[in-house]
């Protein structure tokens, strides 16, 4: 989905409005949710969106390294100005959300975004539908 649509539907506050504007038409198809930045570094899908509680400055370095397009801070967490500044320099779209991580990720999944492993549902790497094959 387009980044600007995502921001609108999830009622996100753009913390780096210039970046959000220039990335508005970007098609986001994947996402990741984690508060452990070591995990984000290792597993977040490039081109995706990150949902996290973590507001430390390292979020920006890790997100850039992982090639993420946008970061959504959940549960009303607000990063310090230096974090926002660094994100603006890196061209990363930062958003604030009042909703918690579970709510945001659930909605993003409804919108068609998927995680990095893709082992649930019809997005499995081998093309088979997952859940129907489970069980006896």
């Amino acid at each position: 989905m387009r980044l600007d649509e995502m921001a609108k539907l999830l009622e996100l506050e753009a913390l780096t409005p210039t970046c959000a504007e220039s990335l508005a038409s970007e098609d986001i198809t994947q996402g990741y949710a984690s508060d452990l930045l070591s995990d984000v570094l290792a597993h977040a899908p490039a081109g995706g969106v990150l949902v996290t509680l973590q507001v430390h400055l390292n979020v920006i370095a890790v997100a850039s390294h992982a090639g993420l397009r946008a970061v959504i801070f959940s549960s009303g967490r607000t990063p310090e100005p230096d974090v926002v500044e660094r994100a603006a320099e890196e061209g990363l779209a930062l958003f604030g959300a009042r909703a918690d991580t579970f709510e945001i990720v659930g909605r993003l999944y409804q919108f068609g975004l998927r995680g990095s492993t893709g082992t649930l549902g019809s997005t499995g790497a081998c093309g088979h539908d997952g859940p129907e094959k489970l069980g006896p």
Binding site: D35, L36, L37, S38, V40, L41, Q54, H56, L57, N58, A61, V62
Partner: peptide, 16 residues
């Protein structure tokens, strides 16, 4: 360590 450490929580060592 894989938990409660600078690296586990923040990915990179924050030099600052």
């Amino acid at each position: 360590r894989p938990s409660y450490s600078v690296y586990s929580q923040l990915g990179l060592f924050p030099k600052e």
